[in-house]
């Protein structure tokens, strides 16, 4: 079990997230539309809680001030060695919704490691899979969303046909 992350659910973040997934549904941005239509509030899109990365102080895939970054600058990579995510690809993602989130919710998020397994593949060599389970609890301590993510580490970049 890693440390608990606090994730405030905010209307502007929901609006930006909806734009990022090309979803113009007013339920993600318009409070009046939200009041007049079910479920009677702005809500967050179904995949929104993956943005918990924004609130994780140790998130590896965010540039941190004063630290070397593996993306390009003067050179093609700012790091000489292997990048933190090198070879890591997203393999599976699962959500269970106990209730949908709205602006003002204050989530407490815990995560734990799940199963690991291996597989051989034609296009990327040996694949190593690792599962993480996140639980998002609201301000009353009730479970709102359970999220299961599977990341796959490949032996080499995925060959393109």
């Amino acid at each position: 079990m890693t440390e608990e992350i606090r994730m405030p659910i905010e209307a502007s973040h929901i609006m930006m997230f909806a734009r990022a997934i090309c979803d113009d549904n007013p339920i993600y941005r318009d409070p009046e539309y939200g009041e007049e239509n079910k479920p009677h509030s702005i809500i967050a899109p179904p995949t929104f809680v993956r943005a918990v990365a924004q609130f994780d102080p140790h998130h590896e895939l965010r540039l941190k001030s004063g630290k070397k970054w593996f993306g390009s600058g003067k050179n093609a990579s700012g790091l000489a060695g292997k990048a933190p995510s090198s070879g890591g690809l997203h393999a599976e993602q699962h959500f269970e919704y106990h209730r949908h989130l709205k602006p003002g919710d204050q989530l407490s998020v815990t995560s734990r490691n799940g199963d690991t397994w291996e597989k051989e593949s034609r296009r990327a060599g040996k694949l190593k899979f690792a599962e993480t389970v996140h639980e998002f609890r609201d301000q009353s301590g009730e479970l709102a969303i359970t999220m299961r993510s599977v990341v796959m580490h490949t032996e080499k970049p995925v060959e393109q046909d």
Partner: peptide, 13 residues
Amino acid sequence: VGDGRLTKFGVRF
């Protein structure tokens, strides 16, 4: 399905 109606959603990439 409408807003706030999903109870489960999962995919493989």
